[in-house]
């Protein structure tokens, strides 16, 4: 701030600013560049919202109908556009991924910020960046060639089925393939791991060093310090990390679509094939024509995805504001 006042004072010494300077064209240009993002977001929201409401406006489907559990655009008595199976699957697959990924990611973030010696950090951090960079089609390909066949075998393996709890999960009748909720959650959990880890890591690093040394000087062990001091004070940051991971997971399309089995039925077991919002869009977009009610339903699904992501942005802001406040 001090510099600005100095500069203002200095301009007073210079000749009065010319027209060119008063117009400040560079400022306008850089402003336009930054503001272009607002234009893009506005345009994107308008277009997706416009397409998304066609199902209700043009095709006369009521909002209540999309929350029915039956999806059958070719039903004899007229199309049935129930999104409930897809919404439920999106929530459950994402939830499963977070359940697997959060402990691992938070553990990894703690490892990096509290435990790891420099040499270990120097290996793990770049590895995480490579993780981020692996494209979703490659994850999907790994899923379909390695994970799905492995799970398929596991679901059938007599030894696994004979195990006490695990066996009951895997032997639910009718669930026979590796294409499943579990496969989707597993693939997603690896994909969101770097996101959660890096945001949680930043949150842990933001806890002042004095608190740590103070706590350790009190004679607590490192784990006690982490559990009673570090995690509580970084909690909102960790929460932000989880929300960001959730957003990424809920919006991922191709990798999930490749491994989840795409069955539009209500979720009942973790070994069952499901369809998420994104995978249904991927599946049907090419088979429908523009303006057809069926395709309008897909646009409504995209609108739901858009609402989910904007909500999560707001959520992160609220969490952060609370952190700033406390």
């Amino acid at each position: 701030m001090a510099q600005v006042t100095t500069a203002t004072r200095l301009t007073g010494l210079r000749a009065a600013p010319g027209l060119r300077e008063r117009l400040d064209i560079p400022k306008r240009v850089v402003f336009l560049a930054a503001a272009s993002m607002v234009a893009i977001v506005a345009l994107l929201m308008i277009f997706i919202a416009w397409q998304g409401i066609q199902l209700f406006v043009k095709d006369g489907v009521s909002i209540g109908e999309i929350f029915s559990p039956t999806w059958n655009p070719l039903a004899d008595g007229g199309p049935q556009f129930g999104f409930l199976p897809f919404i439920a699957a999106t929530i459950l697959v994402t939830g499963g991924a977070l359940l697997i990924s959060t402990p691992l990611s938070v553990g990894l973030a703690l490892f990096l910020s509290e435990v790891a010696p420099n040499w270990a950090k120097a290996i793990v951090q770049p590895s995480l960046e490579i993780f981020v960079g692996i494209p979703s089609v490659v994850w999907g390909w790994l899923g379909i060639t390695v994970l799905v066949p492995f799970l398929g075998k596991t679901f059938h393996d007599p030894f696994v089925v004979s195990l006490p709890v695990v066996g009951q999960v895997f032997s639910v009748p009718g669930f026979l393939t590796g294409f499943s909720w579990l496969a989707g959650s597993l693939v997603l959990s690896v994909m969101v791991l770097p996101t959660i880890t890096s945001v949680a890591y930043d949150a842990f690093r933001a806890v002042p060093q004095e608190l740590r040394t103070g706590s350790l000087a009190l004679g607590t062990t490192r784990w006690q310090m982490i559990r009673h001091l570090l995690i509580p004070s970084a909690l909102s940051g960790v929460l932000t990390a989880v929300v960001l991971g959730m957003t990424r997971a809920a919006g991922e399309a191709l990798a999930v679509q490749m491994v989840i089995g795409n069955s539009p039925s209500m979720p009942a077991a973790i070994t069952q094939p499901l369809t998420t919002l994104t995978s249904q869009i991927t599946l049907d977009m090419g088979n429908t024509v523009f303006g057809e009610p069926w395709q309008d339903a897909l646009w409504t699904m995209s609108l739901i995805l858009l609402i989910i992501s904007v909500t999560s942005v707001v959520l992160v802001r609220v969490i952060n504001k609370r952190r700033m406040g406390s």
Partner: peptide
């Protein structure tokens, strides 16, 4: 923040 959180498929 909004664009970076919008799913790539959207």
């Amino acid at each position: 923040e909004a664009i970076s959180s919008v799913p790539s498929i959207v």
